[in-house]
Nucleic acid binder design. Structure first.
Lengths: 192, 192
DNA sequence: TATATAAAAATGAATGTTCATTCTTTTTTT
DNA sequence: AAAAAAAGAATGAACATTCATTTTTATATA
């Protein structure tokens, strides 16, 4: 166990360092040597855990995305009403982005960039099915406007990424009130 | 004039090549040599027009952003009502992103990345004052919810970037109807 | 339990490549 | 014929990745 434990720590440290450095400097300006240094590891060690730089970034993306969606849907139950369920999931997402804003920023950067290869991106998308199903139910029940999932996503979830990034840049300081207003804006934009 | 004309052509070709290559491969994977090749120019020539790679990207960003905002506000007039003005500007923005989706994608990538340095980013923001003023008026008149400009922006303009990128990736095909639904979603999220 | 040994993990120093930038020469313009 | 613009080749630094060793861990033996 000791052996495996140690390995996981190093791996986590590498992923954490990748997130932080890519957030602050961008993919193009984060050399493997810096990642190694921040993770307190030799550059060569990275290659024991990841095939190469691209693989490191892909795996980081997938891991963060999975953590994110797991958190988003953790407390959701099928038995909930559409409105209740949506409110819950939306708030979990807001909560995650708030609490783990480094991770959230990293995802935002990946989602707008050719930094991640397509297969890894696909993996990330799959995990959102729960929300799409809920929206499907909402549309059928006439509670949510009959719009493409992409539009629903664009007007409810995407704005949060922007707000978190703005906060990280120091352009705004998000309060509980902002989040409440934000939820209302999201709901108003999709409710039938 | 011949001389100046020629120079401007080369400069434009360089900016166009930068947009295209960065969109498809990301900043980290677009060497100056490729930009030069795509613009039909020697690598050395780039340095007659731009100080270095960072400068080239900064200038490209500023130029595209200016073109974008100029287009967005071109037909707006102070005399318009808030709702009318907002609808007009929003549609101009949608229109621009639709017609010039390469440019729009480039901006989206810049806005979520440390690719651009802060001073250049600031320049890009300044040009949005017209919209902020309009929102200010809307809030005063009680037509728009009293929310931070960041939230208004997040729920009306930002979603468009996501939709354009999704379209470019082939995940959705945007129709006139999508755009209309989209405008309604935007307006519903901010109207008082 | 202590010791020896094999296997695994980790390292720091090379390696070779890529790439931004500069230099020197050539071409074009005035 | 001088000046400006452009070119291609050269330069040197940065960097991803690999190599040869060392250190750590696990296992086996006494």
């Amino acid at each position: 166990m000791a052996k495996l434990q140690k390995s996981i720590d190093k791996r986590n440290a590498l992923i954490k360092a990748t997130i932080e450095l890519v957030n602050n400097n961008g993919f193009h300006a984060t050399p493997m040597s810096k990642i190694a240094k921040m993770a307190n590891v030799s550059p060569a060690t990275i290659y024991l855990y990841f095939e190469n730089k691209q693989d490191l970034v892909n795996k980081t993306y997938i891991e963060v995305k999975e953590k994110f969606t797991a958190y988003a849907f953790e407390t959701f139950e099928e038995s909930m009403s559409v409105e209740e369920g949506f409110k819950l999931i939306w708030n979990r997402i807001a909560d995650f982005k708030f609490k783990h804003c480094e991770e959230a920023m990293f995802l935002a950067q990946c989602d707008n960039t050719p930094m991640i290869d397509e297969p890894s991106r696909e993996v990330g998308i799959k995990h959102f099915q729960t929300l799409l199903d809920l929206w499907g139910r909402g549309k059928k029940e006439g509670l949510i406007k009959p719009m493409s999932d992409h539009i629903l996503y664009a007007y409810t979830i995407i704005p949060l990424s922007f707000l978190i990034i703005s906060q990280k840049r120091g352009a705004i300081t998000l309060t509980k009130e902002h989040i409440e207003q934000s939820y209302l804006a999201a709901w108003n934009s999709i409710k039938a």
